[in-house]
Design a protein around this nucleic acid. Sequence first.
DNA 1: ACTATGTTGACACAGTCTATAAACATTAGG
DNA 2: CCTAATGTTTATAGACTGTGTCAACATAGT
Lengths: 150, 150
Amino acid sequence: MKFSKKSEYGLRALIELTAVYGKDPIRRQQIADRQHIPLVFLEQILLALKHAGLLASTRGASGGYALIKPPSKVTLGQVIRILDGPLAPIGCVSKTAYRKCDDCPYVKKAYCPLQEVMGGVRNAIADILDNHSLEDFIAGARSPRKRSRK
Amino acid sequence: MKFSKKSEYGLRALIELTAVYGKDPIRRQQIADRQHIPLVFLEQILLALKHAGLLASTRGASGGYALIKPPSKVTLGQVIRILDGPLAPIGCVSKTAYRKCDDCPYVKKAYCPLQEVMGGVRNAIADILDNHSLEDFIAGARSPRKRSRK
DNA sequence: ACTATGTTGACACAGTCTATAAACATTAGG
DNA sequence: CCTAATGTTTATAGACTGTGTCAACATAGT
């Protein structure tokens, strides 16, 4: 039950990119150095985020990557779903990528005990991750916005 | 962010074993059939649970596996930690297996933005998983015990 | 007691996915 | 047109998932 390194690195890279939001693009090398991320692995991650529309990249001499969506509009849940896929602990409780579990003997029945619990876990995770945005990463902000539960 | 198949299968096997708690041991074949779990993989799982002290096994003609701890005393969190390791999303926020993250540039500093959020996720997951026991799996029990938050 | 049979136990192996590395192609600026 | 950057492709080590094989052992029948 862990996040992949990919997600972790991706989020840490976005911390750097959020810090310079609106300014000139920064080089991937710089991100790798400051966050101690393996350079070439970092690139795959940045590309994925680019293809998802979060980043823009410019090549050539003074190129680099830049965040193009406002930090407040990018939730951690989005980022993790891009890099890691759906965040449900088991397939049959995912809202964004539901997959009926062929092998589960409870498929036909109305109620699956595992599904009950795991659905709760999924919601708890999503509730946190979808209510935190990159904005919560800026500076020493000691107060990630804690939404009251609806 | 998924549980391993190992944990999923393990929990489903325990559903079967909980259902016959106190009675004669059941064969692994029977568990595999009813929950559609690959037979030989299931064995590794049952062994791990046995070594952890949850199950007892008897060999020979009328052998099989049996749950030896009362269902109410076995939390889902315990099971998953046995089969999947600690349930923290990233190493540096685990309570049962803390590992300082060498590569994180915030190690030295007082505050890590990622750690803040991920710690919250960890607690949310643990809060659910450690407050559900195998007892919640019995029969069609439509009411897993929902502890009020402390 | 001996043997046949059914069951768990242990080990080594193969496929797939993740994390990482290296090499080369492509683009843009001075 | 040369250099510094991104972009693409391919390769490798390790963990996770699942299989195959054979040994250890308990029970039942003779």
